[in-house]
C-alpha cells in the first residue's frame, strides 16, 4: 500500500489531534494517581530535614542494643547471612575508636572507650552516594531522607565506594533464604542491589517514628532538624554532640551525644 502526500497529511493531522487530546486525558488520570501516590497521608509525620540524636549512655545492656537492631532488621527483611563477606546490615554496633576514626582521643573516660555506638546511614545533607549514582537509584527526598529504588539499582556499587560511613550493603547473593521471619509489610530485596537504612520512611508515612527510635527507650531521638522546637534540636542544645567525619563535608544528620561519666 502506498500513501500519497495528501493522505499522509490527513492521517498525520488526525493522529496529532487524537494525540493532543488523548495525552491530555491520560495526563489528567496519571496526575491524580501520581499525586495520590506521593502526597503524604493525613497522619504522616513530615519534616524539612529529618535527623537523629543518639545518646548511647542511655543504652545500658547488650540486650538493649540487640533489641534496637532487631527492631530494624526484622521489619525490613534484612537477612542474617552469617558471614562477614556477604553481610547485610542497616544498623549495627561499633566501638568508639572505630566509630570516630581520626577523632577518637587516646585518653577518654572508660565509659566511652568501651561503649558501643550505633551506626547507620547518616542521611547526609550533601550525600556523596547520591552524587555518584549513575541511575538516580539512590536519591535525596525533600525531607532529607536518602532513599533507594531497589528496582532501578544496577548494582555498580559506586555508592558503596563513595559513602564515607560504610553504611551501604550489597546483596552479594539472594538474601531471601536468610530472612528469618519475612514480613509482608516491607519488600524483600533481590541479589545484586545495594540497600541501607531508610530512616523508616515507610513508617513516617503512617505516622510512626523509626523502629529503632521506638525500641530505644528514649536513647534515640528523632525529629526535624530545621524546627527549633523539635526533640532533636532540644537534644542538640542540651548536649555536646559529635557527627562522624564532619570534615568530608557530607553534613550527616545523625548526631552522637558524647556524655562521658555524667551520663554513665
Amino acid at each position: 500500500m502506498s500513501i500519497n502526500r495528501r493522505n499522509f497529511l490527513k492521517f498525520a493531522g488526525a493522529s496529532t489531534l487524537i494525540g493532543v487530546t488523548g495525552t491530555a486525558v491520560i495526563e489528567k488520570i496519571l496526575l491524580t494517581d501520581a499525586e495520590a501516590a506521593v502526597s503524604p497521608g493525613s497522619e504522616a509525620l513530615t519534616a524539612k530535614r529529618w535527623a537523629m540524636v543518639i545518646d548511647v549512655s542511655k543504652i545500658k545492656t547488650e540486650d538493649d542494643y540487640k533489641k534496637i537492631i532487631h527492631a530494624c532488621h526484622s521489619i525490613h527483611n534484612v537477612p542474617d547471612i552469617g558471614n562477614k563477606k556477604d553481610e547485610v546490615k542497616w544498623i549495627w554496633e561499633e566501638d568508639y575508636e572505630h566509630s570516630f576514626p581520626g577523632v577518637s582521643d587516646e585518653f577518654v573516660p572508660e565509659s566511652i572507650e568501651h561503649k558501643s555506638f550505633l551506626l547507620l546511614c547518616n542521611h547526609c545533607a550533601k550525600p556523596a552516594c547520591v552524587r555518584v549514582c549513575p541511575t538516580k537509584a539512590t536519591f535525596k527526598r525533600p525531607d532529607g531522607i536518602v532513599a533507594m529504588d531497589y528496582h532501578r539499582c544496577i548494582g555498580c556499587r559506586f555508592c558503596m565506594a563513595a559513602c564515607p560511613y560504610g553504611a551501604r550493603s550489597f546483596n552479594w547473593r539472594d538474601p531471601r533464604p536468610f530472612i528469618k521471619e519475612e514480613t509482608k509489610e516491607f519488600p524483600t530485596r533481590m541479589k545484586g542491589v545495594v540497600e541501607k537504612c531508610t530512616f523508616c520512611s515507610e513508617r513516617l508515612a503512617r505516622g510512626l517514628k523509626p523502629a529503632c527510635v521506638e525500641a530505644s527507650n528514649g536513647a534515640l531521638v528523632f525529629g526535624d532538624l530545621e524546627d527549633p522546637n523539635s526533640e532533636v534540636r532540644k537534644a542538640l542544645s542540651a548536649h555536646y554532640t559529635l557527627r562522624r567525619k564532619p570534615e568530608v563535608g557530607t553534613a550527616p544528620s545523625v548526631y552522637y551525644v558524647i556524655g562521658g561519666n555524667e551520663h554513665a
Binding site: 552524587r131 555518584v132 549514582c133 549513575p134 541511575t135 538516580k136 537509584a137 532501578r152 539499582c153 544496577i154 548494582g155 555498580c156 556499587r157 559506586f158 550489597f170 546483596n171 533481590m190 541479589k191 545484586g192 542491589v193 545495594v194
Partner: peptide
Amino acid sequence: LGQPMRVMNVILHPTPNS
C-alpha cells in the same frame, strides 16, 4: 554489575552528576 540486565538504566535515566 549486580543487575546486568538493567545496564540500560544508565541511558534511560542519564545522570550527569555521576
